[in-house]
């Protein structure tokens, strides 16, 4: 975790440096939307993780939350976005492997906003670096028909991930300084877990393959409160 923080602060100082005006907090935000798809489809089983077997899985009981701070200089359209997130959800694969995947993550990004950032509608694009720490633990549970059900623990695993993503978004002023942001992202992640036991990477989303390097992506809705001058 210490290494993550050091790397994070170093990256932040590189992005923030080389300009003279002081950085100020321009907005603060939250993202809880990422829970909704898992809640909506918690009962549906789908083939996930690379379509390499016929096994189906479902992800349910999500607890995913992110907080954001946007920093920028006065009268600039370039903002540094810092995010801190927590994700926890359960995974049931083929009615045999039950797991809880939990993770914390840091997001560091740079966003380029259109000039009308405080207007009714505006647009932005950006790129992010995400560093995560993930833990997965669980059991194999086999329901018994002729004998009592059988449960045995699978090895618990923890490790780090890193990902870079490209983001496109639109933001709408809801009320005074309250803004909602719709954004879509396309990412590549490197995970310490190059296998099927970890179909969800905290901070990245569902992985598209079981390899060490995988594509991810998605869309979300965030709520921001604008603090900077108009």
């Amino acid at each position: 975790m210490k290494q993550l923080m050091t790397y994070f602060l170093l990256s932040f100082s590189l992005l923030a440096g080389a300009q003279k005006q002081p950085l100020r907090i321009q907005a603060i935000g939250i993202d809880g939307f990422k829970n909704l798809p898992f809640m909506a489809f918690s009962q549906s089983e789908t083939v996930i993780s690379g379509l390499v077997t016929n096994e189906k899985a479902r992800l349910y009981n999500p607890r995913i939350g992110e907080v954001y701070v946007q920093l920028g200089r006065a009268n600039t359209s370039k903002l540094i976005t810092l995010g801190l997130g927590y994700a926890s959800l359960e995974h049931l694969q083929a009615q045999r492997l039950q797991q809880r995947i939990t993770g914390i993550y840091l997001k560091l990004g740079r966003e380029h906003h259109s000039a009308t950032r405080h207007g009714a509608v505006s647009f932005f694009w950006g790129y992010y670096l995400t560093l995560s720490r993930t833990k997965a633990e669980g059991n194999i549970v086999l329901d018994g028909e002729y004998f009592p059900s059988y449960t045995t623990a699978v090895p618990s695993k923890a490790g780090g991930e890193a990902g870079v993503d490209f983001t496109l978004g639109a933001q709408f002023l809801l009320f005074k300084r309250l803004q909602t942001r719709l954004l879509a992202r396309n990412a590549m992640a490197i995970s310490a877990f190059g296998n099927r036991n970890y179909p969800y990477l905290p901070g990245q989303g569902l992985r598209l393959s079981n390899g060490l390097v995988t594509g991810t992506g998605g869309a979300t809705v965030q709520l921001f409160y604008l603090l900077g001058s108009r």
Binding site: G50, V52, T53, E55, Q93, R96, L97, G138, I140, L142, T152, V154, P155, G194, N195, R196, N197, N210
Partner: peptide
Amino acid sequence: FRRCGYVL
């Protein structure tokens, strides 16, 4: 197993 995950 890489493609299956944990298997009994």
